[in-house]
Design a protein around this nucleic acid. Structure first.
Lengths: 172, 172
DNA sequence: CATCAAGACTGCGAAATCCGCAGGTCTCAG
DNA sequence: CTGAGACCTGCGGATTTCGCAGTCTTGATG
């Protein structure tokens, strides 16, 4: 039993503050294991996590706090907005001429936009938007997004039904 | 201060177990407020939530437990897999001939697939996949997804950079 | 080589939180 | 009128969280 992550301490343990080239903090195996635990249950007690990854309660607590502070992970409640009820949701593919980053930034600033990712392929950006109703959705897409200078075209995919939503990478 | 959700108790308070036509439980204003609290911080103590929404600690605890049991929400750690490091991620649009639901089901069963949604528009399904590396990604898209009987075509959008990821609907 | 600073872990009380459970209230059905 | 169901509050006891002091290792410095 006890699938501990031994990690032998003298190894690359000490470098969880080192930065990799893209500016994001390096994560060792123990932190990954902690994240996995919290992907299963965001409220799992530190002591239980510690037992699972082979660390003391206090150490886990310090690591989790750092991961949160660094923005590497967040512990939140997630729902399917459609299930919750009164919303319209859609994915919007955007084509940009000029500075893609700038458009992505503009989308990020919209409160209706939950998710923005820059992609390779026939869209430059994918953005997920959550709205009150059809009118609101229409307004955001046509009046706000298409109006951004540099947006060449958009294509919308209105959500009909969410079938899966997990956060379990690493756990396999 | 104290943005309490009064809810007057005699009103539509008593029906949080009633089902709306699509089989999902009805949520009253108080449960929504609780979810909002947990969208800000998934580990917020029940007593603090109770103070914010005007309920006792025990009542909040019971409601949260029920929301989790019903699958209306989950409390989890979320990260950007790309930030965490060693992964390739992509959104795949799928066109189906025949039973869309069945294909969606098949995608749901794949561990690399994190997110599946049925949509209206030029794709029938959007699926987000998380992979170890390019080989793995290629394998999943070409060998596994395209091989499903009923999949007419797919189009992939490889993630370059995640710009935004929030869970704050309702909080605005 | 001795020393010092930084980073990470452990141990440990005190304070806060979580948890189960025993009522109490209200509503609806019979 | 009565019972069942749903939801709420209050309350101890068990757990967990929290802050902090102390230890150990690593790496830089004189």
């Amino acid at each position: 039993m006890h699938s501990e992550v031994v990690a032998s301490r003298s190894a690359e343990q000490r470098d969880s503050s080192r930065e990799s080239r893209n500016g994001t903090p390096h994560l060792d195996a123990v932190s990954l294991a902690i994240i996995e635990q919290l992907q299963e249950d965001g409220r799992r007690p530190y002591a239980a996590i510690g037992k699972a990854v082979g660390l003391s309660e206090a150490a886990v607590r310090q690591r989790v706090q750092k991961l949160l502070d660094q923005g590497v992970m967040q512990i939140v409640a997630v729902t399917d907005p459609l299930t919750v009820g009164f919303r319209r949701q859609a994915m919007v593919g955007v084509n940009v001429e000029g500075d893609v980053e700038k458009i992505a930034e503009a989308l990020t600033d919209m409160s209706e936009v939950e998710y923005v990712v820059m992609t390779a392929g026939s869209f430059d950006i994918l953005a997920e938007i959550v709205c009150e109703d059809d009118d609101h959705l229409l307004d955001v897409i046509n009046k706000r997004i298409r109006a951004l200078p540099g947006v060449r075209s958009t294509e919308s995919f209105v959500y009909l039904k969410l079938k899966k939503q997990t956060y379990m990478w690493g756990t396999r």
